[in-house]
């Protein structure tokens, strides 16, 4: 459904992405792994339109979305959950969720149903709904961020380092939720991660980025056995 073909992206004159191509199918979880500065987040930002890509083409369900304004890409159904839990710290959890639905017209009832759906997926958020989101723990904030993304009825959910700065137990929780979202809601997910182990475990296909280039791609199962990956990313 999402096709990235030969994209380059620059920050001023510095090339951050070089000839990247990737594809996401209808019910997939695709992961992108790589070290700091490999261009993972840039790739995601290029898809959502925050960073302008040069050359190449990005199409979503047949529509050309290359260099489209971010708010239009969001309306097309590509929802990015940004890195580092970019929530609204001074707004309540409930308000955060409502903000997620901005691009969609809902009736009061429809909104309540959708929020109820989120509470079922993230039961902790129900208890916290009238708290300021900034007062939540890191894991809970990540849940708010993901739930806010889901509020927009995404056709493709892009998660940027959901495990960043979380305790290992919480990371397990978050990845469990990611799998559930994919299976229960049938939403394809593009996952950018530094935590290669978890990323390979949940995803079906994986791309490895190094210095702005895709160096390896393949099914996650194969990759997690490949010597190169084990050495460089899994600490084996």
């Amino acid at each position: 459904m999402l096709k990235v073909e030969h994209i380059d992206a620059y920050y001023d004159k510095i090339c951050a992405l070089h000839d990247i191509s990737l594809e996401i199918g209808d019910d997939d979880i695709i992961s992108i792994i790589g070290s700091n500065g490999a261009g993972k987040s840039t790739l995601m930002n290029a898809i959502s339109g925050i960073v302008y890509g040069k050359n190449g083409r990005i199409t979503f369900n047949g529509k050309n979305i290359t260099n489209q304004k971010p708010y239009i890409t969001t309306r097309d159904g590509i929802i990015q959950v940004p890195e580092g839990r970019e929530i609204f710290p001074k707004m309540t959890v409930l308000e955060n969720l409502e903000m997620g639905s901005y691009s969609i017209r809902r009736t009061r009832q429809g909104m309540n149903d959708k929020i109820e759906e989120m509470y079922e997926l993230f039961p902790k958020l129900r208890d916290r709904k009238s708290q300021k989101a900034g007062s939540l723990s890191g894991g809970e904030q990540q849940m708010v961020a993901i739930a806010r993304g889901l509020m927009a009825d995404p056709k493709l959910l892009m998660l940027d380092e959901p495990s960043l700065g979380l305790a290992p137990v919480i990371v397990d929780d978050v990845f469990h939720i990611i799998e559930r979202v994919n299976k229960e809601k049938k939403i394809p997910i593009l996952l950018v991660e530094q935590n290669a182990f978890m990323a390979l475990e949940v995803s079906s296909r994986c791309y490895v980025l190094e210095n702005g280039r895709v160096v390896i791609e393949g099914s996650s199962e194969e990759l997690s056995k490949s010597d190169r990956i084990v050495k460089a990313y899994l600490g084996g």
């Binding site: 959502s48 925050i50 304004k69 971010p70 708010y71 969001t74 309306r75 929802i79 990015q80 959950v81 940004p82 970019e86 929530i87 609204f88 710290p89 001074k90 707004m91 308000e95 409502e98 903000m99 997620g100 901005y102 691009s103 806010r148 993304g149 927009a152």
Partner: peptide, 24 residues
């Protein structure tokens, strides 16, 4: 209104507003 909430969220975190599909 919806606008008021967006004004407030702009003060909180402008990047996240953009990702919610708002034309900042």
């Amino acid at each position: 209104s919806k606008w008021g909430r967006i004004f407030k969220s702009l003060r909180d975190n402008a990047d996240a507003v953009e990702m919610s599909g708002v034309n900042i």
